[in-house]
Simulated assay, not measured.
Amino acid sequence: MFDKLNLGDLGKVLEEIQEKAKKIQEESEKKVFVAKSGGGLVKVSANGKGEIIDIDIDDSLLEDKESLQILLISAINDVLKMVEEEKKRVAMNLMGGQNPFGQQ
């Protein structure tokens, strides 16, 4: 069954796949995702790792704590969803376009 299997070639292929995956992941982690809520009154930025790197809040919200909280939660959830979608896109790219997550 494995008589004609060249393990040296298999090792090379796996190494190439690993290098490609690492490069794609590094590129993805450098991306910045931005989500806005309240018509742009709150803006949250995250990197490809899912770390929040910036929050911009319009001064008009500083007197309205409840609205600020709602808009901040909304923007954070949106930006984290963007990061997750990017991770799925990268995984699908590595899988040759086949979706390992079921539906899109």
Rank of each mutant, 00 (worst) to 15 (best):
I53G: 04
E66D: 11
A91P: 07
I55G: 09
L80H: 12
G8A: 10
V44W: 10
E63D: 12
M1Y: 13
I70Y: 04
L5C: 09
E15C: 10
A21R: 01
P100L: 06
E15R: 05
S37D: 07
E86R: 07
G8V: 07
L72D: 03
I73K: 11
K36W: 03
F33I: 03
R89Y: 10
L80M: 15
V42L: 06
Q103A: 14
E85S: 07
E29L: 03
I76G: 05
V83C: 05
I70Q: 14
I73W: 06
N99V: 07
F33H: 05
I73N: 12
E15W: 04
D64I: 04
M82F: 11
D9N: 00
D59R: 13
L71Q: 05
N93I: 15
L14N: 05
M95P: 11
E63N: 12
V44D: 02
D64L: 00
K23Q: 03
S28V: 00
E85L: 08
I73Y: 04
L61V: 11
K22V: 09
S67M: 15
L71K: 02
Q69P: 02
K87G: 02
K20A: 13
K31D: 01
I70D: 13
I55T: 14
E63H: 05
E84D: 11
I70R: 03
G39A: 12
L41V: 15
N93S: 15
L7S: 01
Q98L: 14
V13I: 14
L80S: 11
N47G: 07
K22L: 08
G50V: 04
L62D: 12
Q104Y: 14
E27L: 07
L41Y: 07
G96C: 14
S45R: 01
D56V: 14
N77C: 09
M95N: 15
A75V: 10
L80C: 02
V32L: 06
A21M: 04
G102Q: 06
G39Y: 13
L10E: 03
Q69I: 13
M95V: 12
G40C: 14
N6T: 12
V79T: 11
P100C: 01
D54Y: 07
L61W: 08
M1A: 15
F101Q: 03
G97D: 09
D56G: 00
N93C: 06
M82H: 00
F2C: 13
V90E: 04
E27Y: 05
D58V: 07
Q104K: 10
E26V: 10
N99A: 09
S28F: 05
Q25K: 08
K49V: 04
E51A: 05
K23L: 03
F101G: 12
G48R: 02
A75R: 09
S60G: 12
L5M: 15
L94K: 02
S37W: 06
A75K: 04
E51P: 03
I70N: 11
L62V: 15
N6E: 12
D58P: 09
G48A: 05
M1C: 14
G38I: 13
K88T: 06
E84K: 13
Q69M: 09
D64T: 04
I55C: 12
S28A: 03
L61Q: 06
K65R: 13
G38M: 04
D56L: 12
E16M: 11
L72G: 12
K22G: 10
